[in-house]
Design a protein around this nucleic acid. Structure first.
Lengths: 204, 204, 204, 204
DNA sequence: GATTAATCGAGACGGTACGTCAAGTCTTGAT
DNA sequence: ATCAAGACTTGACGTACCGTCTCGATTAATC
């Protein structure tokens, strides 16, 4: 599921009191705060309900489970950070975009993403929502950056573009989730200069 | 903690019935099976105990918590696959080692590792055990491979060795845990040929 | 409270859509049916509303609570059976009245009354409404019967009238609510002949 | 059900930790206290568990429901008050026994009994347990008293014994549960002198 | 005839209790 | 002191109901 059910194009006119849309945001906000504080495992529906001053039924009316709520909460956050940069150079575009992505991952969304990784193999719906939110978008932007660089003649003809895109994401997320090392601008710069440009840029 | 408590140097000689060491393996085996079937979240101590035909106290006598049991179970598995290859060439060593590591990750240990990722930020002890098991060892072997290659004069002088090591691990784990794409030999070969060798090997 | 709020002498003339008086009966009828089926405890306002095809607000506009609705429903039923008999003889009056009262108690009102007994100690308002409906009226009629019999010289001078009245009610209600034995005409006759007349009638 | 399941004659030897019998009493005591304070309706399992410092599962392991717990709690109390008096006279026996029964009903058991009346029609098991506890025993004792009085030649030959027994119980319980008037010794004396003795004793 | 306001069915809302389930501890008898 | 078994406390789960509220849609009395 993973989204409150407004999108359902209504067949019947509109019966009863309509859902209060402001509760959605309040609940997502509460979920985000609680998850940031105690993590996914220790997040309880009671805590979210209490923080949003809502009844639990109000949550379960919108999301089927804790997982569903968390997914939707993260997805919502991901909508914003799509900024496709255009600095005119491959190096500039890569640096700018990866820095933005790193910042996004360093915030609550990153924490949430990490919390969800363990569920992916057992929750197919979550897995596809997760990949859509955290992987596909970022991958598409990177591909666009490489294409524009190719248009400017900056790429080697045999550049392994797919692999470069994968490596870029992998490097950031590996740091974030596994090593625990900081995901800062110097690191992004090193990834760009020591890995990405050498792999794809002409004359390196 | 993450290891059965035999190491506790006994002050008193040895009184009463000694611990049945075969229960350790039975319990780890049960834990592994249950985790592979239902994942970390849905794994219950009762289920593990029942599968091993053991009492819960028998588990808690050895491990402090569910997490602890799972960590130890995985660590145990990791002990075996340290095989440092020596094919005589950088490319050969990389291929062989990464293929072995990929195979290790593709098994139950990989599933377990994934299940644990979400807990790392809130469980410092788990985090260090996890990194020791899944990251450090692999990193050290890779570093050794690069050093021996350097001794043979196969590396460029300015090769970004640390980054190469990090990228190698990142590429595999990213695939395993996030994209869900298969972690097979062709992929490993592509990583070696399209990424690692270009980054560090002389004359590429 | 225990009565729909029409009595409220309106200060403002009469504005807006007037209340649909037919909903009162529909709701009481629904309440009676539900209570007869599942008892007081398991009666839910949602069930009553659904059965009457009414909104819950329509109920709460008329009655303050579940208790209030049930009380009013029973009271309504009680209004009818006040018939003070006048057969010309004490025995005849007693038989006729107690048979009528037994019939009343054997119907849904009796079930409802029983359902309410448990609430009496904790609901003073309910208690007084309950006593008014189920005890006082019946008691007054019985007292009238005894007085008229006394006027005819049928009573012993030392007849314990108060006790006789109390015993008459007690015998019926005890059967109804506690023993579960049938509250039929033969029983009423036995109460009259074996208990009431011996206690109060001259020459027994 | 209405009794913790020890009575179940065990087929298997005895496996695992046995039930802690002291929890039974603690829970019954807590239930009695809570019920006396807030009544049956408002009694919650959480409140009982909290007061007994027990988990809810510990309650549900023993009793299937709130009703079941309450029944058992009362039944336990009823076991004690069977005292069959033997003063040597019908009047003395009646006074003594009914006073004792009135005292029993005036305590927490009486409150509990009242709370249960409303459930009787919908809970056959409860009904029979209730009657066994609160009616049958008392009835049997009364019957014994009448028989012994008959043996002493105190009864009229045509005395309506069954009705007398029923009336005695009805008078007390009617007062207790319906009218709310006090169930004190003067009242018991009046019942004996004005009703029971006139109905059955010789020469009245 | 248009306006006005309280009604109607429907159902979302904040709460509270429900009965279940799991984690980790403790207690049996037996080895 | 260990073992299997299972009762124990704690606390979260997801559901159901209470009594209130809010929606669009009637429906009279008032203007």
């Amino acid at each position: 599921m993973a989204t409150p059910v407004y999108s359902e194009t209504r067949t019947t006119p509109q019966r009863g009191r309509p859902r209060d849309a402001s509760r959605d945001d309040a609940l997502r906000q509460a979920a985000l705060e609680v998850m940031a504080e105690v993590g996914y495992r220790a997040l309880t529906m009671d805590a979210v309900a209490a923080r949003a001053r809502a009844g639990k039924a109000t949550i379960y009316r919108r999301w089927e489970s804790k997982l569903d709520l968390v997914i939707d909460t993260c997805t919502q956050l991901a909508q914003q950070n799509l900024a496709e940069p255009d600095t005119g150079s491959l190096a500039g575009d890569l640096r700018e975009f990866l820095a933005a992505f790193a910042a996004f991952l360093s915030g609550p969304s990153g924490k949430a993403a990490q919390a969800l990784v363990g569920e992916l193999p057992h929750e197919p719906e979550l897995a596809s929502a997760f990949r859509e939110t955290f992987l596909t978008t970022q991958r598409d932007v990177l591909r666009g950056i490489l294409e524009r660089a190719d248009g400017r003649g900056e790429l080697r003809p045999d550049a392994p573009r797919g692999m470069a895109v994968e490596i870029a994401g992998a490097a950031l997320i590996y740091r974030l989730m596994l090593t625990g090392d900081p995901l800062d601008v110097p690191f992004v710069d090193r990834v760009v200069e020591q890995v990405l440009l050498p792999l794809v840029a002409k004359g390196q």
